[in-house]
Design a protein around this nucleic acid. Structure first.
Lengths: 205, 205
DNA sequence: GGCCCCATACCGTCCGGTCGGTCTTAACGT
DNA sequence: ACGTTAAGACCGACCGGACGGTATGGGGCC
């Protein structure tokens, strides 16, 4: 029925069954972003991936698993990147600017994941939500540490608690999928530039 | 079966059947905020309101109508408030500060509506989404006009386009339900104060 | 011949929405 | 003052279908 290209045998031999499993996650992410988690049926996903439900339930235990995987991958990637910036060299202001730009750019580079993230987290079972929130907290705290460094050395004013600053900025970034359109007049890098200006400007002592 | 208090005859005589219709919208909003739109069945809503499905479909045409009503009421209220501030007296900076505080406070005073808003908009049929987006655009443009006033008279710098400033700030406000907990250490007014400081600071020439 | 990988057919459940009916209340004619 | 009628408010049983998940089996590669 479905026309399927023969992939090189190498992938199958690796034992990871990469193409189908990955394809499922990618099309699922896209569909979740377009139609919402509850607006996407398992049938929709497997149709779009060119396989059947048997394949999906072979690789993933449930529809929830797919959703969790989206979150987990995105968070792991962003946390790793932030970690390198925090530990890097430069003044707190320079590193905070780099972090502020990076979170925007990496979010816009994975726009579908972001959209799904902040729209469908509440659909996950409680324990999964708790796990995700714990990962997010790590990210939040690393970002906060940067802000506090700048406050400690007098670069930033201390009128607004660091916690609120971080909530404020990350919230703005998280909602970016609500208005940004890829292919529009702005590039991710430009948005990162503007957003970081607004953050740093609001912190200047 | 259900114990129902006799209401004063006044309400029924008004022809508006206020209590049941309002109760349905309120409990629906709360349930949507807690469990999501798709995670809430019509049966859940009518059970919580102490009526049956017949009652709900007597007042609302569909489950979608309930959701739309939440959006519409919140937006109408906030737009009205913003309008008064924009047209009020004071420098652009004073009015922008007032607007920035007000949008935070009025959002936190209707936290359930906010949560539902930014989580379930995409569940509405396309035409309803378009209608809501048009209403939001009016709000956005009014806010932007304030920023542009301040840019025109030199109070604010013009490094960042007004459109992006507004997207940035309103996004931060819209996500406020993701971390703010009523009854916590912060009052809505305090959050409004801090958020407005961050916005104004980032705009200062 | 055993083991992944995946197709096919199927199940039980739940859910939005419908529809005929009942009860209360208001208006009206006589 | 009283019966009649009409209308709004609400009940609750029911329907069609979609959806997540499963059980079974076949086919290709070692």
């Amino acid at each position: 029925m479905a026309v399927r290209q023969k992939e090189s045998a190498g992938a199958a031999r690796a034992g990871a069954a990469r193409p189908v499993k990955e394809r499922l996650l990618r099309v699922a992410t896209r569909l979740f972003a377009r139609n919402g988690f509850e607006g996407t049926s398992v049938q929709d996903i497997v149709d779009a991936a060119g396989v059947t439900k048997g394949a999906m339930y072979h690789y993933y235990g449930s529809k929830d698993d797919l959703l969790y995987e989206v979150y987990h991958q995105l968070l792991t990637m962003q946390t790793t990147r932030l970690n390198e910036i925090v530990k890097g060299s430069g003044t707190p202001e320079e590193r905070l600017r780099a972090a502020a730009i990076d979170v925007v750019v990496s979010s816009l580079d994975n726009l579908d994941d972001m959209i799904v993230f902040f729209r469908s987290l509440h659909m996950l079972p409680e324990d999964r939500q708790t796990a995700i929130r714990a990962e997010r907290r790590v990210y939040h705290d690393q970002f906060k540490a940067l802000v506090e460094e700048g406050m400690a050395d007098g670069t930033f004013h201390t009128e607004v608690p660091a916690d609120i600053v971080v909530h404020f900025y990350l919230s703005a970034v998280n909602q970016i999928g609500a208005w940004f359109r890829p292919g529009g007049p702005l590039t991710p890098a430009q948005v990162g530039e503007e957003y970081s200006k607004l953050l740093l400007g609001g912190l200047q002592a």
